[in-house]
């Protein structure tokens, strides 16, 4: 594996882990949902970088599903689970 790509993947992972702090703090449910959306975007980037690093093109399809997942959870949150209390 190219060390530059693994370093890039590790860095993107670190920036994603900053989002856990926002899930812990809140204050509203929307803030926690935003952190989940952050993980969706960074998950796409991680899957694409790892696909290039291990040379397996099929992993890019997993990135497509990550992109869909972020939109799906956001819509489920807005339609069903919104409450400003937590």
């Amino acid at each position: 594996m190219d060390p530059v790509l693994t370093a890039l993947a590790a860095f993107i992972m670190l920036t994603a882990l900053l989002g856990i702090w926002r899930i812990e703090r809140g204050p509203t449910g929307a803030d926690r949902m935003l952190a989940a959306m952050l993980f969706g975007t960074t998950g796409v980037a991680l899957a694409l970088v790892l696909a290039e690093a291990v040379g397996r093109g099929g992993l890019r399809d997993a990135a497509l599903v990550f992109a869909l997942l972020g939109a799906l959870t956001a819509v489920a949150f807005v339609k069903r689970a919104w409450g400003a209390g937590d």
């Binding site: 949902m33 935003l34 959306m37 869909l68 972020g70 956001a74 807005v78 919104w82």
Partner: peptide, 19 residues
């Protein structure tokens, strides 16, 4: 893939802001 993320992100952003 990038265009799909852009469209999904913009839609989700609008939905969350409106909610």
């Amino acid at each position: 893939i990038w265009l799909l993320v852009l469209v999904a992100g913009a839609t989700a952003c609008y939905l969350v802001a409106e909610a």
